[in-house]
Amino acid sequence: MATKSLAQMRPKERGKITKVGGSGHTHRRILDMGVVPSTEVTVERVAPLGDPIEIKIKGYHLSLRKEEAVQIYVEMIER
């Protein structure tokens, strides 16, 4: 099973979160917003240079900074 960080994903790719790394306030906020292991995410859009990256999770859209996205690991879901 292919594991990547969210920052390595391309638009329309889907995955299941396996790990959310990081620490401090932003990390905590990300967890509070539902970015937690075993949740499915779809990458919607990626800005030039990969920052920010827009994902869809639990039915809503969320923008993440690249520095946050590199710490979120996903198992790719084949289409």
């Binding site: 509070d32 917003m33 539902g34 639990k58 039915g59 809503y60």
Partner: peptide
């Protein structure tokens, strides 16, 4: 209601 899962936390 359109964002139930996130809100229920």
């Amino acid at each position: 209601a359109g964002n139930l899962e996130r809100n229920l936390y």
